[in-house]
Structure formats: structure tokens, C-alpha cells
Design a protein around this nucleic acid. Structure first.
Length: 227
DNA sequence: GCCCAGGTGGGTA
DNA sequence: TACCCACATGGG
């Protein structure tokens, strides 16, 4: 099937994307807490709309766990209106702020200073934090190597014939964990590059022959189905 | 008007 | 387990 081993393919995929796009400087934020808030607000939402919500929170002095707890949920929802799902996301932000206050004295160092498995479990136990958001927080706020799998990741791996498109989150994540160095900096850049490539290229050019990944594509760019 | 965007939780069979 | 649906704004 493949002319590459999986470690080779995943490494070459990274190198091709990095050569094409360069460093992506993720996660754009001025604090780790802001990164966590952004990770929740960007769920199924364009980042552009999240930026407005974050600006509103900053302008209102509301970008802290204590202020998020103090604000009425409706008032918090109004501030983040532009990010969509504002009622749901206001509840999610409050859920995170509650756990951070109750169990960690509002200190992200305390939250992050535990075994990575335990940290991920705790994040997943919080209302509104699923696997992808948990891994966003692991990589981009706690600086731990936990690969972020999103729909773009699945789409690109599908086109390269690496996944079927029906695998669960954990199985896709394991591809990266089992075949690459467990390096938070690498995982940071890798996920950002997949995102960049999918947004910039995959939509406009559904075939690999039109993009920088042609050399990795088993079909030579002739897809019958786009994943 | 339509489809999509840096998903998650809840319900049903 | 496997689907289905609600959640909601803003841009192309």
C-alpha cells in the first residue's frame, strides 16, 4: 500500500507542511487562562468570532476565573455573543472557573502540575471540555505532548490513505503518539500546520495533486471521495 | 438562501 | 455502540 512507514510518512508530512507554511505561532493569546477560554469559545466556531468575544471579555475586565464566576451567566453570555452558542459556552466557562477555584485555588500551575493522564481526566470531567478541547489545553496551555485531533486532521489523514475516516479520536491520536517523538513543541506546530493546510488549501483544492502533499498521496492525487 | 467554522452533551434504539 | 440533534454567530 504505502511506500512509507508510518513514522516516515508522519515526519515527512510535517516537514512538507512546515516548509510550505512555516511556523504558525499557536496559540495566539496573552495568557494561559486566555488560551483555555479561547479553546472553549472556538468549539465549532471560526476563530475570527472568538477574537471579538475575547476582546469583549478583556474590555469588561472579565478575563479571570474570579470574574467569570462573579458575572451572571446571562451577562457573561452577552460578552461572548459573537462566538456563537453563547448560553452554552457561558455555562462551560463557568464550569471551568468553578473547578479551577474549588480544586486549584485559581492557579493554573496547580492544575497543570499533576500527572498528564490525571490532568487529562480532570479536564474531561469538566462540563464542556471534550477530547479536542482537553488536548488544546494540554498542548497550548500546559505545554504537554497530547496530540490535538480535529476534523481537519481526520480529513487530511484520510486523503493520504492513513485513516478510514471512521476511527475514534483515541485511535487517530495514537497514530501520532506511537510514531513521533512525544514533544509538545512538535505537537503544537503539527496541529497548527494541519489546520492551516486544511483551511488554506484543502477546501479550494480537493485533490492532493494540486497541493504540496502530492508526494505523500497514494492515489497520486486522484481521490474519488474527499474525507 | 446555503454551507461552514480550531465540538460537546444529551437522548434514543 | 451508533446515530441524531440542539446549540448560534458571522463570513464566503
Amino acid at each position: 500500500m504505502h511506500k512509507h512507514t508510518l513514522p516516515d510518512l508522519l515526519t515527512q508530512l510535517y516537514q512538507l507542511l512546515y516548509q510550505r507554511y512555516g511556523p504558525q505561532h499557536w496559540w495566539p493569546s496573552s495568557s494561559r487562562f486566555e488560551t483555555v477560554v479561547g479553546a472553549i469559545l472556538t468549539q465549532n466556531t471560526a476563530w475570527r468570532n472568538v477574537e471579538r468575544a475575547l476582546a469583549n471579555l478583556k474590555a469588561a475586565g472579565a478575563l479571570s476565573p474570579a470574574r467569570i464566576r462573579e458575572l451572571a451567566q446571562d451577562d457573561l453570555a452577552a460578552l461572548i455573543r459573537s462566538s456563537g452558542y453563547f448560553n452554552t459556552k457561558a455555562r462551560k466557562l463557568k464550569a471551568f472557573a468553578d473547578v479551577l477555584g474549588r480544586h486549584h485555588d485559581d492557579n493554573l500551575d496547580h492544575l497543570f502540575d499533576q500527572e498528564p493522564r490525571a490532568l487529562r481526566r480532570e479536564l474531561l470531567s469538566i462540563y464542556g471540555i471534550g477530547e479536542e478541547t482537553a488536548d488544546d489545553i494540554m498542548v497550548y496551555a500546559a505545554y504537554l505532548p497530547s496530540f490535538v485531533v480535529d476534523s481537519y486532521t481526520v480529513r487530511i489523514l484520510g486523503r493520504l490513505g492513513v485513516t478510514s475516516g471512521k476511527q475514534r479520536y483515541h485511535a487517530v491520536q495514537a497514530l501520532f503518539h506511537d510514531n513521533l517523538p512525544l514533544d509538545a513543541g512538535l505537537f503544537n506546530e503539527y496541529h497548527a500546520l494541519l489546520d492551516r493546510h486544511a483551511k488554506e488549501t484543502c477546501r479550494k483544492m480537493p485533490l492532493c495533486r494540486d497541493c504540496c502533499l502530492l508526494s505523500l498521496c497514494p492515489t497520486g492525487g486522484g481521490h474519488s471521495r474527499a474525507q
